[in-house]
Simulated scan of single mutants.
Amino acid sequence: MPAVTSGPIMADGGALVLFSGGQDSATCLAWALDRFERVETVGFDYGQRHRVELACRATLRAGLGRMRPDWAAKLGDDHTIGLSALGEVSNTALTRDVAIEMTQGGLPNTFVPGRNIVFLTFAAALAYRRGLRHIVGGMCETDFSGYPDCRDDTIKALQVALNLGMDSRFVLHTPLMWIDKAQTWALARSLGGDALVDLIVEDSHTCYLGTREMRHPWGYGCGTCPACLLRAEGFRRFKSA
């Protein structure tokens, strides 16, 4: 597993982190706080079944601030954007009470078409208004369900389109793109030690079904949905490394 070190502090415009309240986005927020002088967060309410993730965001932000005074000083405003129209046009297992299964097209029915494209477009519009140049997201092409809008090529193409369309110089950062879930846990520990790992276990939410009744070694969730299984296996490998 490659070693992870802190990066240089970047002062050119600050950063906006796509912050859902899940394991990946919490790790990305810590990553951004370690690198940028000013960090704001944005979450999206699109009618997701696991909407409980949005309620985790304030607790995670507060926990990160208590963990390191320098992070608390950098952590700026939080924003929530309502995108109910995305949920209305998405007949998926993340926006409807249906069983999670594979579709004929080879993608799981948890895929919300255009979700990351919409998220990053709205994030860029917000970053434009807030004077933030860097946009950080938890997209990953290593441990993922085949979602095409999580691929590196998609993110690079979108960066070009956003910069052309807004006449700006946004930089889209995806620190998890080429690491798996075990390495994501390791990244969290390298940034904030066991305290950050414990915070993510206790207060983040990644389960697709929104279940927080069952506590597992890796956190809360149903334990059987694809998100829970991926997180559990990653945590097991992280602990055994």
Rank of each mutant, 00 (worst) to 15 (best):
C140F: 13
P108L: 06
T27F: 02
G234I: 01
M10W: 09
G47N: 09
D180T: 10
G76M: 04
P69D: 12
L75I: 08
A232V: 02
F170V: 04
F235A: 01
C207M: 04
D203S: 04
C225A: 06
R236N: 06
E53P: 12
A195G: 07
F111W: 15
C150R: 02
M139D: 11
L199K: 00
T110N: 10
R189C: 09
G138D: 09
P217Y: 02
C225K: 00
R35S: 01
F235K: 00
Y220H: 12
S25T: 10
A232L: 05
T27I: 13
V118W: 08
L229H: 04
H205T: 07
M214K: 11
P148S: 13
R115F: 07
Y208F: 13
I200R: 01
Q23E: 09
R189Q: 14
T121M: 01
R51N: 11
I155R: 12
I117R: 14
R115W: 02
K181M: 07
T206G: 12
G105Y: 05
W31L: 08
C56E: 07
R169K: 09
I117D: 14
V201Y: 00
R96T: 01
V118K: 01
R35I: 00
G138V: 10
H216D: 01
A241C: 08
Q159E: 15
T95E: 11
E101A: 14
A125C: 13
M1Q: 03
F111C: 12
N91W: 11
L107H: 15
M166A: 10
T92Y: 12
A32Q: 01
T41I: 11
V112S: 09
L196N: 07
T41V: 14
Y46R: 04
V112Q: 06
L29E: 05
P217I: 00
A93G: 00
T224S: 03
R57Y: 03
G146P: 11
G63Q: 00
L107C: 14
V89W: 12
G14Q: 01
S168N: 10
L187S: 03
W178H: 15
E202G: 02
A58G: 07
G146F: 14
T224M: 00
P226S: 06
L64P: 09
C140M: 15
G210K: 08
L54N: 10
A124Q: 02
R231I: 11
A99F: 04
D143N: 15
R35Q: 02
L75Y: 06
L64V: 09
N116A: 10
D203H: 08
R49N: 02
F119N: 10
C140N: 15
A188G: 11
W185S: 06
D12L: 11
Q104K: 06
R57S: 05
T211A: 13
E40V: 01
R236D: 00
A157Q: 12
A3L: 05
R115H: 07
G105S: 10
R68F: 14
E37M: 11
D152I: 15
G13P: 01
A227S: 13
G210P: 11
T103H: 09
G137E: 13
D34C: 10
S90W: 06
A157Y: 10
G234S: 03
I200K: 08
I135Y: 05
G165N: 08
T110W: 07
